[in-house]
């Protein structure tokens, strides 16, 4: 009996420790990736079923709640701007000179035809707030040691019930992520690579998104330039700046 009790206690303790670990890992990852603010330029290559397109943009981000993106090319998208404040999203289209709020089922549309939806971009809650996580194993991805984390939703209003993340054990950078439906069906896969050290942070500069329910070769997202902790004027995060 004593033995059994001991085993149970040990087991419980182990579980506690590992879940604690997992949360810690996630927090470290978050603090590593997100910064107070950042400015970056990126290239998005969308490999559609029929053709590929390249879109470049420049983004200003403060914390999790505010972001502003301006598209630079191709000509068709140039000048299109996107503003996200809290859980609201506006798009400005220069050809129509209109600011349109994206809400409801429009959020489920893909961003510029990529494998990402607006909704995917919008969920800015901390992973540790909406998922409970645990370390389920170890793996090696392209020579880097990783923990495998399994995240299960704690709340009901999330798109993906479970996620699996592969976190670099040394740099606290996610290298791969898989998103699952409630049933366990894999829906999306994200692969992160070309991890670079920028201003003392490890940062993946290439992210490949693949919506497994969609035809085509996935979307490649490359950060071509990134600066952390810059001074971003407040007026950028206003609707007025969309029209400028």
């Amino acid at each position: 009996m004593k033995r059994i009790l001991l085993i149970i206690t040990t087991l419980l303790f182990t579980v506690f420790v590992s879940s604690q670990n997992a949360d810690d890992i996630l927090k470290k990852v978050e603090s590593n990736i997100s910064s107070d603010n950042r400015i970056f330029e990126s290239t998005m290559i969308i490999n559609g079923a029929r053709s590929s397109r390249t879109i470049t943009s420049k983004s200003y981000v403060v914390g999790d709640k505010q972001s502003f993106t301006e598209y630079l090319s191709p000509a068709r998208e140039k000048g299109t701007k996107m503003l996200k404040l809290e859980n609201q999203l506006w798009i400005y289209s220069p050809s129509t000179d209109r600011i349109i709020q994206i809400a409801g089922h429009m959020l489920r549309q893909s961003v510029m035809g990529s494998d990402l939806s607006y909704e995917d971009m919008m969920d800015d809650r901390k992973l540790t707030d909406i998922y409970s996580s645990k370390v389920t194993g170890n793996d090696n991805i392209e020579g880097r040691e990783t923990w495998i984390l399994e995240l299960t939703a704690k709340v009901t209003d999330v798109a993906y019930q479970t996620r699996k993340m592969w976190i670099d054990t040394e740099r606290y950078v996610p290298l791969r992520e898989e998103l699952f439906a409630k049933s366990g069906q894999m829906l999306k896969r994200t692969t992160m690579s070309e991890v670079e050290n920028i201003n003392g942070r490890w940062f993946p500069t290439k992210i490949v998104y693949k919506d497994l329910m969609k035809q085509g070769g996935g979307t490649e997202f490359k950060i071509t330039q990134v600066q952390f902790n810059q001074k971003i004027p407040d007026h950028i995060f206003t609707k007025a700046s969309l029209k400028q």
Binding site: A159, K182, S183
Partner: peptide
Amino acid sequence: QWRDAGGTFDA
């Protein structure tokens, strides 16, 4: 495949 009342994907 569907999304439940909370928006969670399921299949």
